[in-house]
């Protein structure tokens, strides 16, 4: 349903709430992307497929978000939208559309996703997570 940024002196912290785990993860990517590129709109020129694993939801979310940092640094790919996302047990499959990062001007370098206070929980049908990004 939504994500919001919380106060953190040195880093960036955000909280996401959603009714499904897929949407929760997808919104977490939106929060990560907003941190990186602000409100710049990214065109849908290319597509990337990837899979990550994690032994619990925290690790799965960590590895999922980290993949976007990898795509940005190693392949100069900036995500625009999650096209499909499938989470089954310890496995996550994602198709994401976006564009070459070199076509845009933006400045916030997210160094890493961290386990700092990270949690993914479900209560009464609502999924909640919090993440701190090292910037």
């Amino acid at each position: 349903m939504s994500y919001k940024f919380l106060n953190h002196t040195a880093d960036v912290k955000f909280k996401v709430e959603s009714s499904t785990i897929e949407e929760l993860f997808s919104l977490a990517v939106d929060a990560l992307n907003e941190t990186i590129r602000g409100d710049i709109k990214i065109l849908e020129q290319g597509e990337k497929n990837f899979e990550v694993k994690g032994k619990d939801l925290e690790e799965l979310l960590y590895n999922f978000l980290e993949e976007f940092l990898f795509l940005l640094d190693a392949e100069d790919f900036l995500a625009s939208r999650i096209k499909s996302l499938e989470i089954k047990d310890d496995n996550l499959k994602c198709v994401v559309v976006g564009d070459k990062a070199e076509n845009y001007k933006f400045t916030n370098d997210v160094k890493a996703v961290t386990y700092n206070g990270m949690f993914v929980r479900e209560k009464d049908g609502t999924f909640v997570c919090e993440v701190v990004l090292d910037v």
Binding site: L69, D73, A74, T107
Partner: peptide
């Protein structure tokens, strides 16, 4: 290899944020 792949295109660049 993942770390190397991230670093390879970035050698000789300032970065962003507080850099």
């Amino acid at each position: 290899q993942r770390a190397k792949s991230r670093g390879m295109p970035q050698l000789g660049s300032l970065g962003a944020g507080n850099h």
